[in-house]
């Protein structure tokens, strides 16, 4: 057991790098998949099968001029993407990719997670919700009406779905009697919570889609209405950071779903991290699939779904869970 500051830092760096790579190639995967869903090829010019496309994009982004709108609040304008990105990556720190692993060739064992606290779930939720400040600040600091509208939409959406999201998760918490991911994951050794918590899972999933601003709930950057939402005035790397934050959020939520409902890193034959990746991948695939299939909802429909469908269903789920836990 060599958990210490150094190891933690190393683990963090590794995780951050992996995540960035993951994000970069997820963009390729998404574009490719969307292309195939739409009977197109997707990126195929840069490198074989367009595999170099993310790198090309990175190069393009890095080259671009960093413009700051004249009326913008400069500091906040600059800070916003960083906030978004930091929060997105930060949330990942508490997710487990397995229990304990031995570093090959040595007898050093490490935890396959950075930290585990008794309130992990709360911390993830907290950090995840902080991520929205990036959006809001970006939208506000741009001093542009479309950006502001996008930011405000983001907040409204967040607040609305946070409720249902949390309520849906509480079902799992009750069943596992813990807020720690490790404990929750370990509690699913025999039965994934997707079975007993199916209602909760549905709510969780829809709310997660909305929380990550993915279609069909990407009202914050709805191009037909608010141009590009909160990042209308952003370009180059700053835009890329927003995009990264958004994607990492989606990954985080997928991971969360995997841990909470699909048993986390556990699984037969393969090691924990692989299982975890597979489960995250499955989530992400569904997210992309949904994006390819469903049209964007209107804002009022968004609110209606959040408050009038998800919230009651989540409450019902909570109630059923509570009753079941107490009386079964």
């Amino acid at each position: 057991m060599v958990d210490g500051v150094i190891i933690t830092v190393i683990k963090s760096l590794v995780l951050a790098s992996v995540l960035m790579g993951f994000f970069a190639y997820m963009t390729w995967v998404e574009r490719k998949l969307i292309g195939r869903f739409q009977a197109r090829y997707g990126p195929n010019r840069v490198g074989p099968y367009g595999l170099m496309q993310p790198i090309a994009d990175l190069g393009k982004m890095l080259q671009k001029e960093n413009m700051i709108p004249e009326m913008a609040h400069r500091k906040l304008y600059i800070a916003a993407p960083f906030i978004a990105m930091t929060c997105a990556i930060g949330a990942f720190g508490l997710l487990p990719f397995g229990n304990v692993a031995t570093i090959p060739g040595t007898d050093w064992t490490i935890h396959l997670y950075i930290a585990d606290t008794s309130v992990s779930l709360l911390v993830v939720a907290a950090i995840g919700s902080l991520g929205f400040y990036g959006l809001m600040i970006g939208g506000w600091a741009s001093s542009s009406k479309y950006a502001l509208l996008g930011g405000m939409r983001a907040i409204a959406q967040l607040v609305s779905y946070e409720v249902a999201f949390t309520l849906a998760v509480i079902g799992v918490i009750i069943q596992a009697s813990s807020l720690s991911f490790v404990t929750i994951a370990n509690a699913q050794e025999h039965l994934w919570y997707i079975i007993p918590q199916f209602l909760g899972f549905l709510v969780f999933f829809v709310a997660a889609v909305a929380e990550s601003n993915r279609p069909p709930f990407d009202l914050t950057e709805a191009d037909g209405e608010v141009v590009a939402g909160y990042h209308t005035e952003y370009g180059g790397m700053r835009y890329a950071m927003f995009a990264a934050a958004e994607f990492i959020n989606a990954i985080t939520l997928s991971a969360l779903g995997a841990v909470l409902f699909l048993g986390g890193p556990s699984g037969p034959f393969l090691p924990g991290p692989i299982w975890m990746m597979l489960k995250i991948g499955a989530f992400l695939f569904v997210l992309i699939w949904i994006r390819a299939t469903l049209p964007r909802v209107r804002f009022d429909q968004l609110m209606k779904i959040g408050w009038k469908v998800l919230l009651p269903v989540a409450t019902l789920n909570l109630l059923l869970t509570a009753v079941a836990v107490v009386y079964l």
């Binding site: 506000w140 409204a156 967040l158 946070e162």
Partner: peptide, 23 residues
């Protein structure tokens, strides 16, 4: 727990509302 609640309740909800209204 209070610390986490502080973040979730205040930062996650109350301040968001503040920013929304200010905007």
């Amino acid at each position: 727990f209070v610390a986490a609640a502080q973040i979730i309740v205040y930062a996650g909800a109350v301040m968001v509302m503040f920013l929304f209204v200010i905007a």
